[in-house]
């Protein structure tokens, strides 16, 4: 079934209808979330009570908008902080890994590569609890040995960052490694023939070549960290990132405030994705 092979008209019509239905299915939940952010009612459901901006800008009870809701704003800040650190760490380690697997041949390399892929096939919640168990064992050990209570090893932001990093680093490695594989190494050799040492050659030739992949990996890591739920849930302390804060509210019952936050999230992440695509096109 390809365009060059004629097909019965009814069949290709049915196929097109199926594709349209599929995209309606994809869009429906998101459209509904976005539309009800503007409902002038306490509940994100029918009946439609009229259009309002209050769930964004409202400052009086019972309709406090996103921009006046302190806990939500703080949770967004926490999420951004975590996401930036996770992305920086992942891109740094990912670049190092990409060079390691691309430039060196050593014993056990294949095995190490498979091991590096494993975090992708471990359920997020299991990653979370294993890090929780291990970090609390280390914390207890420090206490028993030196009476030193290292707070950072208890559930909290450090563990959230490490937990997310533990699998996002694999993705960064794959993204950056794929571009490094396409790099023509004779360019580096040319730079060295012209008098550069290896480090200078890598810094002035290879790293600029890798830059689009590094930025791409950063954006992907940022978005994955921002929307991560399972691993974060097991490691979170008192500072909840946005997904956890929204989850807690959703359990209590939802107001269109959550729709407003969701709409902002959708706009933010689509903008970020568009910027990334535009950037990749240009380079």
């Amino acid at each position: 079934m390809i365009p060059t092979i004629p097909q019965p008209r009814a069949l290709s019509l049915a196929y097109t209808a199926y594709i349209i239905a599929f995209f309606v299915f994809l869009a429906l939940p998101l459209v509904v979330v976005a539309v009800f952010a503007f409902n002038d009612s306490q509940f994100p459901s029918l009946p439609w009570e009229g259009f309002t901006w209050n769930w964004f800008f409202g400052s009086e009870r019972p309709m406090i908008g996103v921009f006046h809701e302190r806990p939500i704003l703080r949770a967004i800040g926490t999420s951004c902080f975590v996401a930036i650190l996770v992305s920086l760490l992942s891109v740094a380690v990912g670049t190092s890994n990409a060079f390691l697997f691309n430039r060196y041949r050593f014993r056990g390399q294949g095995l190490l590569y498979v091991f590096m892929l494993l975090p992708l096939v471990i359920p997020g919640i299991v990653l979370g609890i294993s890090i929780l168990v291990f970090s609390s064992r280390v914390a207890n050990g420090l206490w028993d040995m030196a009476q030193w209570d290292w707070e950072a090893l208890r559930p909290g932001l450090l563990l959230v960052i490490l937990g997310q990093f533990s699998f996002i680093a694999t993705i960064a490695t794959l993204v950056i490694g794929a571009r490094l594989q396409k790099f023509d190494r004779s360019l580096e050799e040319a730079a060295m023939n012209l008098g550069a040492n290896r480090l200078t050659a890598v810094r002035t030739i290879t790293i600029p070549y890798l830059a689009p992949a590094m930025i791409g990996a950063f954006v992907v890591a940022f978005l994955m960290s921002f929307e991560n739920f399972n691993t974060t849930l097991m490691l979170v302390g008192s500072d909840a990132p946005l997904t956890i804060a929204m989850f807690d509210r959703l359990k209590e019952g939802s107001t269109p405030l959550l729709n407003a936050v969701s709409l902002l999230l959708m706009i933010g992440s689509s903008l970020l994705a568009l910027v990334m695509i535009a950037f990749q096109r240009r380079s």
Binding site: A27, L30, E227, F247, L250
Partner: peptide
């Protein structure tokens, strides 16, 4: 749709 949080 997948750039949006699973929660949404």
């Amino acid at each position: 749709p997948f750039w949006v949080s699973e929660l949404v």
